[in-house]
């Protein structure tokens, strides 16, 4: 495997995940980029920065080096609240409301495109 380092005989494959250090680095930010006018901002990745201004500067440098965007948002990762519909029963029921879908209605062909 190209960048994976093989485990030498007698070594453990386990990898440490923390140094136990209390030190906090720069906070993490989520980056959203609008590729062109007329479409929404899309999540493109994340980065570290000390403040919003540098988060924006970094986003420009890191994620739009090849002219990928016309507008950039940055959001502190800890400010993102998530909801996982697959895990929520009430959402499954909401999904079953087929009358919300256009395909639930029969319109005769001769009426044309609707």
């Amino acid at each position: 495997m190209t960048y994976e380092v093989p485990v030498a005989p007698g070594e453990s494959a386990d990898i440490e995940e923390t140094t136990g250090s209390e030190r906090e680095g720069w906070p993490l930010w989520e980056v959203f980029v609008r590729a062109r006018r007329g479409i929404s901002h899309v999540h493109i990745g994340s980065l570290h920065a000390a403040d919003p201004e540098s988060a924006l500067q970094n986003a420009r440098d890191v994620y739009t080096r090849r002219g990928e965007g016309v507008s950039v948002w940055v959001v502190p990762s800890e400010q993102v609240y998530a909801f996982e519909p697959e895990a929520a029963a009430d959402y499954v029921e909401a999904n079953e409301k087929v009358y919300r879908l256009a395909t639930a209605y029969d319109i005769p062909d001769e009426v044309g495109q609707m």
């Binding site: 720069w26 570290h48 540098s54 500067q57 440098d61 890191v62």
Partner: peptide, 11 residues
């Protein structure tokens, strides 16, 4: 000093 700075200085 940090990856983001590396990239910015490169730009």
């Amino acid at each position: 000093p940090e990856l983001e700075i590396d990239i910015a200085l490169g730009n």
